[in-house]
Design a binder for these strands. Structure first.
Lengths: 149, 149
DNA sequence: GCTTGACCTAAACTTAGGTTCAGGAATTAC
DNA sequence: GTAATTCCTGAACCTAAGTTTAGGTCAAGC
């Protein structure tokens, strides 16, 4: 264990449960920007644990790395984020989650309306082109899901 | 428009909204098995439209191609599926959807419990290792999500 | 002071769900 | 009957989110 000047990448990995390669990957994606020591090894602060934890929660909620990066860009620059900062930006997840749940509930209603008939008609069932938001829950073909370029 | 002996792949594409390449891809994955005409071109029946529609709905609900294949394996062999057949197997989606919604609701509760504090603690927040089922809603690192080999 | 384990980078590989391309063959339209 | 579409196959390419590997450097234990 490195005692002075921060945690090594291995320390951070064992504290978060992430793999070392994943932490390096998140850095490459711009989600975390550690210092380096004289030997060019990464050194992390305690607050980076919270940063990675946030990434994990956000992923569970279904955000992509790009989206997480955008959200984290709203953290204060120039100082270590406080608990209040994290609490504030976590609140957005509530909304995202609500939307996703609502979308699936609408899907369920449409499905209920359709189950009886078995028609599966593209025109009639309204199970298609359902919600523009939160696409990519299932991946699916771009054209139909609404990702068309 | 081909009048006799079935639809061409292009016809099927325009009737379903899928791309021709996607239809060929689903065939490669074993989801659909068209006949061929004398010139080796694929010929489809009307019932294949329903088949593809089913695939689309299943994807929206979040099933992978492999899972869809498994579900469709329960259709009757040797005869064209009826509406009743489709209706029956569509019913399973209800359950899948219910589970997914329940999972997201549990997630929301946990999040609510955590939003106030901003701690994002891996130990305390219980936002981790949440539900074994329906993993891969967000992709995330295997190790944490529970996909470990 | 040297060996072992942790760390470094860059590049290649992985899975899912497709798309795009190259080089031909079949069909359709006029 | 010929030109324009559509279709065929196989292989390469794409994105996301990482993992694995190769070849080398750093740090820690004894």
């Amino acid at each position: 264990m490195a005692m002075k000047r921060g945690l090594s990448i291995g320390d951070l990995a064992s504290r978060t449960g992430l793999s070392v390669s994943a932490i390096r990957f998140y850095e490459k994606k711009g989600l975390i920007t550690p210092d380096r020591n004289d030997g060019n090894q990464r050194r992390y602060e305690g607050s980076d644990i919270r940063r990675l934890s946030f990434i994990l929660i956000a992923q569970q909620i279904g955000l992509s790395i790009e989206q997480i990066k955008d959200v984290m860009a709203q953290l204060p620059e120039g100082r270590t984020p406080t608990k209040a900062d994290w609490s504030k930006i976590s609140r957005r997840f509530r909304k995202t989650l609500d939307e996703r749940i609502a979308m699936m509930e609408r899907m369920r209603e449409r499905l209920d309306g359709c189950i009886g008939c078995g028609c599966l008609s593209l025109k009639a069932c309204s199970l298609y082109n359902p919600d523009d938001k939160a696409r990519r829950l299932g991946v699916g073909p771009r054209f139909v899901i609404g990702d068309a370029r």
